[in-house]
Design a protein around this nucleic acid. Sequence first.
DNA 1: TTGAAAGCGCTAACAG
DNA 2: CTGTTAGCGCTTTCAA
Lengths: 334, 334
Amino acid sequence: MVTLKQLAKELNVSISTVSKALNNSEEIGEETVKRVKELAELYNYKPNKVALSLKQNATKTIGVIIPDILNHFLAKVLFGIEREATKYGYNIITCISNESLEQEKESLRLLANGSVDGFILSVAEETQIKNEIEHFKRTITQGLPIVMFDRVAHDVLCDKVIVDDFDATFNATKNLFSENRKHIAFISTLDGLSVGKLRERGYKKAIFETTGGEPLVLKIKKKDDQQKKIMAFFKKNPEIDGVIAADSSSGIIAINTAVKLGLKVPKNISVIGFASKSDSYHTIPQLTTIRQHAKEIGTSAAQMLINRLQNKPIDVDVKTKIVKTTLIKGKSIL
Amino acid sequence: MVTLKQLAKELNVSISTVSKALNNSEEIGEETVKRVKELAELYNYKPNKVALSLKQNATKTIGVIIPDILNHFLAKVLFGIEREATKYGYNIITCISNESLEQEKESLRLLANGSVDGFILSVAEETQIKNEIEHFKRTITQGLPIVMFDRVAHDVLCDKVIVDDFDATFNATKNLFSENRKHIAFISTLDGLSVGKLRERGYKKAIFETTGGEPLVLKIKKKDDQQKKIMAFFKKNPEIDGVIAADSSSGIIAINTAVKLGLKVPKNISVIGFASKSDSYHTIPQLTTIRQHAKEIGTSAAQMLINRLQNKPIDVDVKTKIVKTTLIKGKSIL
DNA sequence: TTGAAAGCGCTAACAG
DNA sequence: CTGTTAGCGCTTTCAA
């Protein structure tokens, strides 16, 4: 890479002249500016980012820590963050915590050394289970703002972007009741997560409000065979005529399992799942989905962080933005 | 963030003494080292990454440019890259080209200013179609090594990690012939990509070698309704008794469609698709998949790049690593 | 209109 | 054993 120094030498002027010329300073003579710019162009000069960062004490880089890149929702949020960040001239450094508290801490620690100006993150499962928040607080105290999305630590004072998980399942369940379903089950692989709990509560509230009957909940662990669990669940509870799935794969597998068991979807059983558009094509009939607008969540999170970074006076009041879900009707409900 | 300067002042020693003490230099007295380390600990001192990068003229950061983060395969490669990079103390800056040549160029340009030490990338679809490679060459000439994976530009001299796409579909097709299938179709959404073409060729070669009959190919465009296309294809060609799907969703939809049409899988029709483990659970029976070992591809790519970065003498000969696919039998073939 | 110098935070050669 | 100095590439004040 060419440096100002090299250009200056070649042009027989000083480094500062070159710098000013390239930055369109009024101070420099027209002729000089022209000469400088031409040579810079020729050598494809680009200001060294690292030097700029050091000088300006800001990297224009955002640290993003997500628990799982293979999760379609999280990947899509990342996409949204990347788009928005790029738009404002920010780069993103991505770390994957793998749902591990240790890795989350480590990533935070490693990047909190001037590598990034702030963080956008979704809390790891282990962190939520152990309810650890010190590492977040420490980071914020150090002067690095954090924006949390989806899985948030409520006790940490920072900006947040969340989904209306409770309302989403509440409304979805109500929806199935309104098409006269009597035995609506809830299937979830997200038991350890704040969002999983909220979704379960929304479902239960709808059940209690409507029938006063017993909720029917199937919790699946990561290591379980999801297909087998769901098949066994359906066989054991043949009265099930509606399913709310808290995650994308459970909804897909529920439909396929129902079909396999000879049930007609949606004639005999309705299914609604948290899933993306592309997931909904993985079943026949197409899955009715609760969309979380992952990309918008990413966009909002990035906006909030960049906003905070650019408003120098440390704004004390934190904001929580709720991105509302939308129920997109496929053919899996009446 | 605390700096050496502040520590030095507080300790009444020089900056370099502090620096040396913290770096366990032999030069510094035991007592001093102790005092320095204690204060550093107290203030949670961490060397400023940006200053180090400037000094050492290396950022320990890798630029990763991928065409689509929502593609499960690419996301998994990214995961592999992140793991391996982290292991060696490298961070990754991720850019998403969105299959666009312009964005790919822009990302390369924006990061080639000292932000990263090298690149790992998979070529955007538009770039492959237009066959543009100048931006890659320019970057390499600038001294930034590139490692390409999966979708590579063969005319660019750089390290590459690729999949044995041709062999994979060739063998998969042969496999279906060996279970006595007579009318094997090929379904692909990847027509514009180098890997899509290779997969088609592998299939065709197997067809020609075995039956001498006509290949039966369905190409689906991004904007098409994939479910409808596949349904129509099956209806128009009821003789089909085997399917090789070049992408993950086509395989899943093919099985679901077959089931919908009343066919028994695998009794009446076998299906093999390029897909991940989690995808294979999206069908009943479980999809037989060609696994690309995405994570290993990421790991290898990262290793190759880091290796090149650490072997200062610019190694001229480039390597291409082929990661072999594995056929994982589900229940969708005999 | 141009240049010299300081400084961002750090390391390292060299001097004391 | 400790300190001074230079320098990584850049911007910016101040001096010429």
